[in-house]
Design a protein around this nucleic acid. Structure first.
Length: 919
RNA sequence: GGGGUGGUGGCGGAAUUGGCAGACGCAGCGGACUUAAAAUCCGCCGAACUUCGGUUCUUGUGGGUUCGAGUCCCACCCGCCCUACCA
């Protein structure tokens, strides 16, 4: 037997698997199907450890399902459009296509080393014209069904990226890619009408998705129930000013209105003497980025327009203001302000001296006058000062469930002043991008100013290749004439749309293309779709909660409503599948993996000097030092264990001391130049995301060449709770290396029993079948770490049996073969090699998953804990099928001495577990 | 501010959902083998006390329910993630 040499066997089997097409998945109506999908990568050119952590456990799960008897499809592809390719073009003078395809080629090689069961025949690459022809086709279909439209809108413009972004791509007023500021700009842009599906997207019935994802989507959609109320402007034309409110019950306390600075009625309402101030305010907010707005804190700003409007419930004239805390993009862009019961309105009213009228008398509290109030009153109670609503109960319920709100809505509808209304935070999906490297939008603008879609025979509209990329980053499509100039359907001169589509558009339907990437009659092959859809398990990162995962559901629902699944549905029905609601959701089950973080590290050795107050030090100086030597009395020296703000926990030689840095205290870190801050101190076990700049990146290629893919896969699955992730630990890999070394030895051993023993054989079989029970349950639950722990336990039992050589050959073989079979999804190469070495046929990956015999797995005797008043006082060994009475008798005998004749008050017997005697 | 999620040995993590807390592994310690080291093998490994048989404490903190709580309930503290003037 030779030593375990992963490089050799991995190359060998990779080749054989490809030659024999081991992982080709074909429609087979006689077998149950399982479509396992993992998120496709962006072709950055390098596979990092996070890709491995996402993909290889997903692969193991797919392989497990295959062994369980399912016909499994597990495809892969590339989400290949996007900005980095254009940056490469500008910076390195490489065409985006060349750069992208070179990266894809490199990543395909890296992925092959994973040993995953990807069916490469089904690979889809979103920047292939064969692929984006259908992305364009979807656009056309959506356009024709009024799901895509163009409008002038205030949008997020990123000067750094030279493009607009969807709301989902803007985080804290910065773009999610570079973290550069985003500003608001009026532009004519393409949108998808995702809001049409807002209510259906809130319904997760029938799909098994993690609760946090469902909550994030629910919050993102942000359904709120309330009413639209029409105020009339105090002008000659009495222009209606519509507001949305969730609290129509407080209308009688509305003492002013606030419009967004961009609101179209601002000009009408503004009096001559206020024009200058209003214009100045509008200009300031237009220029401000969202971050600048936020950096102002909660301090309210705004100006009076000089205009008034009439509150429809009581005819009161209320002043109309503009302020940036009212957003044009939410609701109607105008609010009624109820300072008594809304904290923002209260702050605004106090700052500008506006009237405050309380309309809710809180339960069990004295009524406050407006002058006495220190903050808005948000409480349950009874309506006051509200005419017809006086005395009605207000509770904390939302919408019509709240009696006061219901009464207010009824009043508004009877008096024609407003109506019940639902508002969503979700806005239509902005898909225009002013970029080159994306799927073109198949629209042309005719001479007369109208537009039309490009005829399907003329698609795909392809990206021109011989373009120059300006250093400004401007899209070449906007200045490359051969692309721009075209003709319309009647042959007249026309101009092409120069915007391309958001790359999330490409990734909103890729799992349909995988089914048959060469299909020419439509985006997906209905014969394949009928069998494989929907996706059974989707795995990937949770960071896509409100972007990709929401778009994917929208796309699927729109496709269903446009009849795009009709053919597939018919074929499915013909083959006996239940088709009701079959195509309502794209993915039945979703599971998110956690993130692998950088390796943990030791904290800085710090020395603090300052004033002691009891056990705590108020330090005026903290410095990073080399060692704890030469410590003066009264100073603290030790490793920084924890830090919260300016409070540090320092582990000195004998104890942990709390050190608080005083306000003007000095921090000195010799390794970092300039003025240092307390935030730069590294504390114990501080862990961070991996990044090149932090120098804590783990390179999977290097690990594979050092240890083999089987070890890397196995370690990733063993060392973490997959759904949580955690910090990398370079030492931990040794444990899995030892495990595979043992597996290698056991798998190659020729076993000859010396002193065969029935009891030992039974014990080994029991261990084998218990491992089957645990591994099966855990693989099903994505609990890879505990599944592997049970295999390691079986390994330990086997090593013991090998030493004692006291089990039967049959028991030995069953244990070794089962261990290999159960390890096969995790470490596919070594198990294939050993399967062959043990004289079994090719391939282990086509064997059925071992099924436990519960009778064999059952323990013969059980250890029962005997407690007195809940504390362990002894243990007894009883037969597995012992009766309750006999267990109790044995337990009482065990503790007879301790009881010393005392009569127990109560005896609790939990069969198979414990006996608790209460005295 | 709102929401989510988590807090268990030196570390990664287990705990059939209310029943022996710490499975499995890493690191560490002691021993064997070796001229030596690595590898390997054997043993120990939450803390304190101990007459070496045990005893007491221990799942962020404080209460509660229960024969029995890491698990359920209440209050609080801390970490991470998402979101944020959403009317």
């Amino acid at each position: 037997m030779s030593n375990y040499n992963p490089q050799e066997i991995e190359a060998k089997w990779q080749k054989k698997w490809e030659e024999t097409e081991l992982y080709r998945s074909k429609v087979d109506w006689d077998k149950p199907k399982h479509y396992a999908l993992t998120m496709l990568p962006y072709p950055s050119g390098n596979l990092h450890i996070g890709h491995w952590f996402a993909m290889t456990p997903s692969d193991a799960r797919a392989r497990f399902m295959r062994m369980k008897g399912y016909n499994v499809l597990f495809p892969m592809g590339f989400d290949a459009f996007g900005l980095p390719a254009e940056n490469a073009a500008v910076q390195r003078n490489i065409h985006p296509a060349k750069w992208t395809y070179a990266n894809i080629e490199k990543m395909r090689k890296q992925m092959r080393s994973m040993g995953a069961m990807f069916d490469w025949e089904r690979e889809a690459v979103s920047c292939d014209p064969d692929y984006y022809k259908w992305t364009e086709w979807f656009f056309k279909e959506f356009y024709e069904e009024n799901l895509a439209y163009k409008k002038e809108a205030l949008v997020n413009w990123s000067p750094a990226l030279q493009t607009v972004l969807a709301n989902e791509q803007v985080i804290d007023g910065k773009d999610e890619r570079l973290g550069q500021p985003v500003i608001q700009k009026m532009m004519s842009q393409w949108f998808f009408r995702i809001t049409k599906y807002a209510d259906e997207l809130l319904d997760f019935e029938g799909i098994d998705w993690p609760e946090p994802i469902r909550l994030m989507q629910t919050n993102w959609i942000g359904r709120s129930e309330g009413a639209k109320v029409t105020f009339k402007a105090d002008t000659a034309n009495q222009e209606p000013i519509v507001v949305f409110t969730t609290r129509p019950d407080t209308l009688w306390g509305a003492t002013f209105m606030v419009l967004s600075p961009e609101h179209p009625l601002v000009d009408v309402l503004t009096m001559d003497e206020n024009k200058a101030a209003v214009a100045a305010y509008q200009e300031t907010t237009a220029k401000a980025t969202e971050i600048e707005r936020l950096s102002e804190g909660k301090e309210k700003t705004g100006v009076f327009t000089g205009g008034y409007a009439t509150n429809p419930v009581n005819g009161a004239k209320v002043p109309v203001w503009i302020a940036d805390y009212v957003l044009m993009t939410y609701g109607t862009g105008a609010i009624m302000a109820v300072p008594a019961h809304d904290q923002r309105d209260f702050a605004f009213a106090r700052k500008f001296g506006l009237e405050i009228i309380p309309v809710i008398q809180p339960d069990g509290e004295e009524a406050l006058t407006a002058d006495e109030m220190e903050e808005a009153v948000v409480a349950s109670g009874t309506m006051i000062n509200s005419g017809p609503l006086d005395g009605v109960v207000v509770n904390s319920e939302k919408g019509r469930k709240n009696p006061a709100i219901a009464a207010a809505i009824d009043w508004l509808q009877e008096n024609g002043a407003g109506e019940e209304s639902v508002n969503y935070r979700l806005r239509d999906w902005l898909i225009s991008r002013q970029r080159y490297w994306g799927s073109p939008i198949p629209i042309v603008y005719k001479e007369d100013g109208t537009m039309e879609t490009v005829d399907v025979t003329q698609t795909p509209v392809t990206l021109p290749e011989d373009v120059d990329f300006e250093p400004t980053g401007r899209s070449p499509l906007t200045y490359y004439d051969p692309f721009l100039n075209t003709t319309d359907s009647s042959g007249n001169v026309a101009r092409r749309e120069t915007d391309t589509m958001d790359t999330f558009m490409c990734s909103s339907w890729y799992w349909y293309r995988y089914l048959n990437p060469n299909y020419g009659a439509g985006p997906m092959d209905p014969e394949e779709a009928a069998y494989w859809l929907p996706v059974d398990v989707y795995t990937g990162g949770a960071e896509h909660a409100t972007m990709h995962l929401l778009y994917a559901r929208f796309f699927n629902k729109a496709m269903r409503d446009l009849g795009m699944f009709d053919d597939a549905s018919e074929i499915a029905a013909k083959n006996g599948r239940q088709t009701d609601g079959l195509f309502d959701e794209p993915m039945v089950m979703l599971r998110n993996q956690g993130q692998i973080l950088g390796e943990e590290r030791m904290g800085d050795m710090v020395m603090a000097t300052g004033r002691w107050d009891g056990d705590k030090m108020y330090a005026d100086r903290v410095e990073v030092v080399e060692s704890a030597d030469g410590v003066a009395d009264g100073t603290v020296v030790g490793e920084l264990m924890r830090r919260t703000e300016n409070v540090m926990h320092v582990a000195t030689a004998d104890k942990t001391v709390v050190v608080e840095l005083v306000d003007d205290g000095v921090v000195e870190i010799p390794a970092i130049e300039g003025k240092n801050t307390v935030n730069q101190l590294k504390h114990h076990l501080e862990i961070q995301r991996m990044s090149k700049s932090k120098g804590n990146v783990v390179d999977p290629d290097a690990l594979v060449s050092a240890h083999g893919a089987d070890t890397v896969r196995g370690y990733l699955m063993f060392a973490f709770d997959w759904q949580r992730g955690g910090p990398w630990n370079s030492q931990g890999m040794a444990g899995f290396t030892r495990f595979l070394d043992d597996v290698w030895t056991l798998g190659n051993a020729s076993y000859i029993p010396k002193k065969e023993n029935d009891k030992a054989s039974r014990a080994l079989r029991r261990a084998t079948h218990q491992a089957m029970q645990k591994a099966t349950r855990d693989m099903e639950a994505f609990s890879f770490n505990t599944a592997l722990a049970s295999l390691m336990s079986l390994r330990n039992t086997l090593k013991d049996a090998q030493k004692k050589t006291n089990v039967s050959v049959a028991a030995w073989n069953e244990a070794v073969d089962s261990m290999l079979l159960m390890l096969a999804p995790v470490s596919p190469f070594i198990t294939e090699e050993l399967w062959e070495a043990r004289g079994h046929g090719y391939s282990i990956h086509q064997q059925p998953w071992p099924v436990a015999d519960d009778e064999i797995a059952k323990e013969e005797t059980l250890e029962i804990v005997v407690q007195i008043n809940g504390k362990i006082r002894g243990k007894i060994e009883v037969a597995a099928d012992a009766s309750r009475e006999s267990i109790q008798d044995a337990a009482m005998a065990e503790i007879a001495d301790r009881l010393a004749g005392k009569e127990p008050k109560k005896v609790i017997v939990v069969p198979g577990r414990l006996v608790n005697v209460v005295v």
